[in-house]
């Protein structure tokens, strides 16, 4: 088991290293480079000055070498300076990460609870009326463009009904818990609705499978009440694959968060990455993307470990 964990950790580290290089290379291919921006704001710069600046910033060096220097400083905790925020990127990242965690956690809880309830109900009578409606709901969740769903929420609940604020994380001058919560309701609901669809389908499939399994049938035949059978026997068995699948879907969740944050102007990681790319803030974009990768890697690793722990046959391989 320890060896399994070690091996997976090693793999994750290698993937991270490769990814950091790929992202570094890609960011370098975005329009303009840090110097262009500087030159644009200082029209008097002569070609000699520009060349000199390029040398100072190391922009004349080959990609590998520049990456190497960046990697060394990154390993020492220096991820550079954010252009649009005029702060070290890590200091911009911290609060954004926190905000995203709030959003993700809240919507995750909502969608897991919702999907378990609906998935189990649907699995009790596969093919019935209730199942059909729940399936339709699930398919709608998978198929709706998240940004448009957010737009519709804003249209209905903010513009027409004035129930919730359309954007931001708090009103100026307020910012208490209730105020923050009011600002979070629509983003959380949007993200939760979008994720619930996929989850329901997993829970439903997994429940139908376990309800067909022999020992559940036996328990039913022995006269255990319907409710107890479902909850105790089937639920426990259905849990493992569902939890794994959900944990493995963290990347998707993150993409959803990016959109929700952008739509509702929530200052989280997703919006930060989006804004940094729009604003040519290379360091911030790089740091944000890397952290997003790390978070996804970690959640996959945890899902893997959990699975290996629950089902030792996998870990041996």
């Amino acid at each position: 088991m320890t060896r399994f964990i070690l091996r997976r950790l090693m793999q994750a580290l290698i993937v991270l290293l490769v990814m950091s290089f790929v992202i570094y290379g890609l960011i370098g291919l975005m329009p303009g480079d840090p110097l262009d921006i500087m030159i644009a704001s200082n029209p008097g710069a002569t070609p000699e000055v520009v060349a000199h600046l390029r040398a100072i910033y190391g922009l004349d060096q080959p990609l590998m070498l520049r990456y190497w220097h960046w990697l060394i400083s990154a390993l020492m905790g220096d991820f550079g300076f954010s252009r649009i925020h005029s702060q070290p990127t890590l200091e911009v990242l911290g609060p954004a990460l926190l905000q995203t965690c709030k959003l993700l956690l809240a919507s995750f809880v909502v969608s897991v609870v919702l999907s378990f309830v609906l998935g189990i109900v649907a699995a009790l009578r596969p093919g019935g009326i209730v199942d059909s409606f729940i399936s339709l709901f699930a398919f709608a969740g998978i198929s709706v463009p998240v940004f448009w769903l957010a737009l519709m929420m804003i249209l209905v609940f903010a513009v027409n009904l004035h129930w919730f604020p359309a954007s931001g994380m708090a009103n100026i001058g307020d910012g208490g818990f209730m105020d923050q919560a009011r600002h979070l309701i629509m983003p959380v609901t949007t993200l939760a609705l979008a994720n619930t669809g996929g989850f329901i389908r997993y829970v439903r499939a997994s429940m139908i499978e376990t309800l067909r399994m022999d020992h559940v049938r036996t328990a039913r035949a022995k006269g255990a009440g319907e409710g107890r059978v479902v909850l105790i026997h089937a639920f426990r068995n259905a849990l493992i694959p569902v939890v794994t699948v959900i944990a493995l879907n963290f990347g998707t969740l993150f993409s959803g968060a990016l959109l929700t944050e952008t739509m509702f102007a929530q200052p989280g990681m997703g919006k930060m990455i989006y804004d940094s790319i729009l604003g040519n803030d290379f360091n911030l974009a790089l740091t944000g993307l890397l952290f997003a990768t790390v978070v996804t890697l970690l959640s996959n690793l945890l899902a893997d470990l959990a699975y290996g722990w629950l089902d030792p046959r996998i870990a041996v391989r």
Binding site: V15, G251, F254, S255, I277, A285, L289, T296
Partner: peptide, 12 residues
């Protein structure tokens, strides 16, 4: 598979 899909697509 583990890449954060949307941010990556935006960069691309």
């Amino acid at each position: 598979i583990i890449l954060p899909l949307l941010p990556l697509l935006i960069v691309l």
